[in-house]
Design a protein around this nucleic acid. Sequence first.
RNA 1: GAGCGUGUAGCUCAGGGGUAGAGCAUCUGCCUUUUAAGCAGAGGGUCGAUGGUUCGAUUCCAUCCACGCUCACCA
Length: 490
Amino acid sequence: MLRRRDELQKLIEMNINPYAYEFPRTAFSQDIFRSFDDSAPPQTVAVAGRIMSIRRMGKASFCHIQDSKGKIQIYLKKDDLGKMYDAFKLMDIGDIIGVHGFVFRTKMGEISVHAQRLELLAKSLRPLPVVKEKIDEHGNRIVYDPFSDKELRYRQRYVDLIVNPEVRQVFIKRAKIISTIRKFCDERGYLEVETPVLQPLYGGASARPFITHHNALDIDLYLRIADELYLKRLIVGGFDGVYEISKDFRNEGMDRTHNPEFTMMEIYVAYKDYMWMMTFVEELLSTVANEVNGTMKVTVGSNEVDFTPPWRRLTMYDAIREFTGKSLEGKNEKELREIADELGLEVDQTVGIGAIIDEIFSEKVEPFLIQPTIITDYPIEMSPLAKKHRFKPGLVERFEVIVNGKELCNAFSELNDPLDQRARFEEQMKLRARGDEEAHVLDEDYLRALEYGMPPTAGLGIGIDRLTMILTNQESIRDVILFPQMKPER
RNA sequence: GAGCGUGUAGCUCAGGGGUAGAGCAUCUGCCUUUUAAGCAGAGGGUCGAUGGUUCGAUUCCAUCCACGCUCACCA
């Protein structure tokens, strides 16, 4: 750092502004490679980027600069640059430069830019973790001593992005996923809306909220745990389809698949039911997979996941029967506990039928569903916002999409009977009174909205972070969130 | 929240009760087509923090902090 300060001072003394105002770039690295032609006259370009390596040989040097699309080699000669070549001697890996020059091919065959003019655009004062690499005879990129410390990578994501180009690709894909979802929904006429992040009551999911305080009103507000209840209010208001892609916040543990703030896409479509939504989500996710990776198939860890529709659909009971040989249909709580016991599962004594079934499913079925699978018809106890099944008592019209052993989407035929909804909320309040901090809160205004009448509606939620994990083959949510939550540095 | 593990130079890592090591990076010199450039030389560390044991601790012990993995929790 001190040395670089000295260099900075010397550059200033040479009458060079180390922090330029702009640079008239005409080309990116990759575009130059694409358009290069050995037989054509040399093309003049202006490129800019960060110096990533330097090879000095007295009165001539090579360096690689990195721009947003890749790297390109620059050849600098004292004969061509004069005073600026001396300035170049004061430049380091990490500095951002602009180069005017012509494109040529070196003796070693690398397409490079022969610098005719050099400008310093930003002097770097902090040494970059230098990653050396070479391409072996098979064309594989070998990286020596990569910048791999996860704590540093997450805390200083800017450095991670500079040094680890594959990280950049993950976030480019993430943006593509979101823009594809948006385009897909817009094309079908659904309206993108924004609903409150700060809510006087939180709802739409089972989770503990973050609480904050509004000074002027002197009231506590909650950061939303879901968008659901506000979006359905908009269906009451007469929109045919509304969707929102936004951050939700849940005040719970963090691990490989959970970050306290995460991105959710929710969509509600009037006059549709969950059967319609199954086809919708198949089309949506297969389109997204195809747009992002150019194929419906994606490698996730040691599995290959194929999003080509149609996906397998089976009921939760059938899935449990298939994977455990046990039939849960019509069983009472005592019988279910016995079955759970036989399967070697420990189920808390206080929980009800729904939770026992959910436990069996989560442990014995879900992890083994690798290909996209639609699991339908969940126990009513777990789903206070879903409509009762039209002919299966005790169940609701709900489905989840399981991919690579994890829940990716959750959808229902939305409950639009205000009296039933009130009864369900009251059940939740009883759970809350018994100490379940994650039980839903009764929302009088939401009930009032339903009392005005909500058309039959299908709703869907997709965890964008988890979707990104699958489509980019990342095993931690922290690798698909630019700035994941960390404890403060001390 | 629990268990296990990690923390040493800018980065990646060795080491080990007696004042600290490598490669790359950095600095100096040579080098006008190099590419993990090369050659010769040099500098760089509160060994995560705080206590304890010891003549002596970076090393052993305890506590704390941060991170990772697994589990628990979690739609």
